[in-house]
Design a protein around this nucleic acid. Sequence first.
RNA 1: GCUUCGGUAGCUCAGUCUGGUAGAGCGUUACAUUGGUAAUGUAAAGGUCACGGGUUCAGAUCCCGUUCGAAGCUCCA
Length: 621
Amino acid sequence: MRILQLHCDSIEYTPTKKEIKSAEEIENPQTQRLEEVVVAFVAIEDGDDSSVAQNAISQIKNSMEKIGCKKLLLYPYAHLSSNLAKPFVAIALLKEMEDGASDLEVSHSPFGWTKSYNLKVKGHPLAESSKVVTKDSTDSKDTELTSEALKGESKIRSYWKIMSPDGVMSNITDFDFSNYKKLEILAKYESAKVRHVDEPPPHVALMKKMAIADYEPASDSGNLRFFPNGRLIKSLIECYVTDRVKEYGGNEVETPIMYDSEHPSMVSYFNRFPARQYNIDSDGKKLFLRFAACFGQFLMANQFQLSHKNLPYRLYELTRYSFRREQSGELVGLRRLRAFTMPDCHAFCKDLEQAADEIKVRFDLSQSVLHELGIDKSDYEMAIRFTEDYYNENKSSIEELVKKHNKPVLVEMWTEKFFYFVLKWEFNFIDSTGKASALSTDQIDVENAERYGIEFVDENNTAQHPIILHNSPSGAIERIIYVLLEKAAKDIKEGRKPQYSLWLAPTQVRVIPLKEEFNDFCESLVDKISSNDIRVDIDDRNESIGKRIREAEKEWIRYILVIGDKEANSENLSIRDRKTGDVRELSFDDFLDEINKQTKDKPFTGLNLPKYLSKRPQLMV
RNA sequence: GCUUCGGUAGCUCAGUCUGGUAGAGCGUUACAUUGGUAAUGUAAAGGUCACGGGUUCAGAUCCCGUUCGAAGCUCCA
């Protein structure tokens, strides 16, 4: 950071025009005049951080004390350096310096504007000085860039409670958890931050063994690859969630995966929520990979002409991918990734009342989607967080959500609004190692409509900012697969057969010819079955019948048809049902019915592997 | 990101403490076998012991660094 400090009789400056896109918004670009003031021209350089800003402001304050001046103007002045920091960093640090001098009469001239100015510098020896403050010259115990938002977060004050379905709140220490063990884990996990695990989560081995997904060493950590089985499962889940959101009223859109971090909306957002994101330098443009679908949808909604009659209006996108550069130590299998697929549905509502109605609809949608994916209420615990003010004014609508869940929920009450939302709920899956992971979530956002300039015209023909809800009905798709695999691992551990929901099974029916001479018969049988939208394959390998059945079992294939003389000459099919382990006789049509009943209302896609096992490479053991 | 532990055949792992010819099972390939509801038999191929450096007559083994993974911490808009 470079500073030119001048003790002036007076300064007069006039903002004339914005120099960069991310220039600070100002109310009135009028001429400002200050008298008996220290003007600090400041250039914030690449690499400067919070510690540099603190150091700089304390040096300025020191010298001001010497000359006995109480008035400070921070004047962002790019021309002192050729190695400037990114604007959003600069704005944050400037703000931090201003806050650090709140005991003085302090102000700053607008950032990012061309200004004309006129100043009269005093004639005493200490009137002019320059300073260079760098990280090296600063005691750098805090090397991370700490913005106001991050510092604010550590200062957040909140109270943890448990709310029963009847709306009664109790302290965590008073609540009887004996019937709610998982809620107790969540409560301890969140509030006391108690975590101890000494084994890797079992889904990591399963995702490889079942040839679903694996780490890709040639990429960055947390960027997985999905094998044909995994792609098929993921694709079906993606389709299903999208279908359900569209049915609810979401309009699917597609937006870019990278954004300009110097775009004004981003600057303001980053200033509030500095992210760990992937950055890309492209021809001098500072791009970042999106970490949510919010930007794309908000920037799009900004262009829409909205009337109160259009609301609630719902936009939806399934991001493949969202990127978050999570700390390397936090990445695990399919639970926590750096690149993940996230359904994200925003509802623009005209006021808090409409938002409270809308959030109920989405709450039901989320529970229903999870249920159909194979995740029941008993598998997750609900947490709800809100500001004290929101609670006092909307008590009954909060209680209604808790009542819908019909189990006690973890409550976090914030004394102030720290984030952009006033309420947030989420469903947390607790795995066998006691780790909590959020699945579905919804938020009531009262800030971003203004930040992104989203407006609707109300009944009185006045422009207003809508309230925005942020719902992911399922949470990340990878995380859904993680939950399904963790549940399967639990089944294995407790002696039950793990299984896929039939609509998600990579192979639904396997046909095994007893001898080569039945291959033709099997071929036509398989064609007949697959023409009814069923994923069926043929194990034509030269292996014993026992071995081929065993391998089908290991792949969790629900139905096995062994074809020999008896079957080739029979009207009926002999079906080995893995669920029971028995062999049943069924007519072809009854068999189709049985399958269709289980896959009804679910998306279908064809077999994603070679039809013949003899043509299939082994991907994983 | 920090601390700790780990990386040996395609996979799962022994061997490392105590330095001296690279091991097993599964899988793969070939041949035989044509089966009746959870593993047919025989044989073969397959390894710069993660990468780079050091100590030593000699390093998978001991030491240092890097990288990837795991657990804990921190974090999760």
